[in-house]
Design a protein around this nucleic acid. Structure first.
Lengths: 253, 253
DNA sequence: CGGGATCTTGAGCAGGTTCAAATGCTGTGG
DNA sequence: CCACAGCATTTGAACCTGCTCAAGATCCCG
């Protein structure tokens, strides 16, 4: 990788506060970077690498941007805690949210082809990320082959996720969309050892609607219908899923 | 096959069907694999590699499958001549076409995460591909670092393309969708030195509609409207774009 | 505790779908 | 080489899902 040589000024943020504590592998188990490192030395992670990477932590508050469209690619981000939305724009200003990302997921990979960010990433709640500068990633990629493979896998996974979203946007009706959406979060929370049936959505109804290609009002209506049908209960952004099987049959893969 | 002749006027496929000549770099300029190799030795491609790869050519006839959903990942494919559609399915059998791929493009990269194909690839007309077995790709990847970077770039590019499609499916109306679609082909043909304003679409109206998330009939109606507005002329699958600028302003990025 | 943001629900409208039918190609078999 | 069967394309008309506009309820933050 030759493109990553340029060094970007580090972001002048009040993120320094959190930097004093050392990140232990245990607290990083959920971190995408941990996944990148895991196979380096068999089951034992190369701690030097991990620590180098995770030392570069930053704290963002709700509404702040990780990166903007068009900015040169500086770093990729692993979410340690919190959530982020990414979105693209039409040239007349319409927005399409392309993903909601939670603890342990990686951001910024779509930028590699263009050498600049092609989407924008905005933090939905107070969120801590590990910022991995491209040159650091490059250096370790050259040293440790399995990281390259992990990168490929992660990017390939992103392609798969996008395929699923295209299927949803192109072929599913409102109920199928919302059911699919909820089950996606259920699975992802479960993978991170959170409850798969009771969780908090950190984004607004409007964001959900935008992501799923439907109006905010339609999202509300479908939520209400699901509640009437005993499929779930909602309390603002707090959701409890009551009948995963029925939701699955509604979502239709 | 006449369709293929119309599509590729300068490259009579039928004449090459029983092609036994060695593929020279020149005839491979448009091939995605060539892109993979190009930076190996500066401007000069490693011919051993290129020849090894492109020797593995296969000819497919209209309607045949390159791979099916669920099959273990064996190889990736570079289209040398012809066109291919890829699609995914809901579990109740609905189809969403995720891409139309033409000469020089690479297929199968989304399968790396799952180690099996997650979409299906069907040939739209007589098509020649280079089949690159994964172990071959692996071997050369280990030997030649720049191939890895090329792979990353190509996958990243696929993520970008998918983002564009999501924007289209989520936020654009019928006219914007068709205009965007036509301009995408215009650009891609131009990049391959074909005419950007006069080309043959190798897929049916129904496929176009499926891809763009609209009914076949709507595709026809928008084509008719565009023709009434002097934006283009159509003759079955033959399209001539008359006013790229106005199409661009309709497509809205 | 006030005010803006978010969420919810209702009513009417519209873009696009579905159903139906006519017409035109294509390539296949005799 | 030609006729015909089958598929693709086009156009019309009625319908419906989800959108827009509007208004009220609720929450959250300072």
């Amino acid at each position: 990788m030759t493109a990553a040589v340029r060094m970007m000024p580090t972001r002048p943020l009040a993120a320094r506060a959190a930097d004093s504590e050392v990140c232990s592998p245990v607290t990083c188990r959920d971190c995408g970077i941990y996944g990148l490192c895991r196979e380096v030395n068999g089951p034992d992670v190369d701690l030097r690498l991990l620590e180098t990477i995770v030392r570069n932590r930053k704290l963002f508050k709700r509404g702040e941007l990780l990166y903007r469209i068009g900015e040169p690619l500086r770093a990729i981000y692993a979410i340690r805690c919190g959530s982020v939305k990414t979105y693209v724009l039409t040239n007349d200003g319409r927005v399409q949210i392309t993903g909601f990302h939670i603890t342990g997921e990686l951001l910024g990979l779509g930028a590699i082809a263009a050498d600049r960010y092609t989407s924008e990433a905005r933090v939905l709640e107070t969120t801590m990320v590990c910022e991995v500068p491209l040159d650091v990633l490059d250096a370790y990629s050259n040293e440790i082959p399995s990281i390259r493979y992990q990168m490929l896998k992660i990017m390939s996974q992103e392609i798969l996720d996008n395929q699923e979203l295209m299927l949803l946007l192109g072929k599913k009706n409102a109920e199928e969309r919302l059911a699919t959406f909820l089950l996606s979060f259920s699975r992802r929370f479960q993978r991170r050892s959170y409850s798969p049936t009771k969780f908090n959505l950190s984004m607004s109804r409007s964001d959900i609607g935008n992501y799923l290609g439907m109006a905010e009002e339609t999202v509300c209506r479908v939520f209400s219908r699901f509640q009437d049908d005993q499929l779930l209960t909602t309390e603002r952004r707090q959701v409890q899923l009551l009948d995963l099987d029925r939701l699955k049959s509604i979502a239709r893969g």
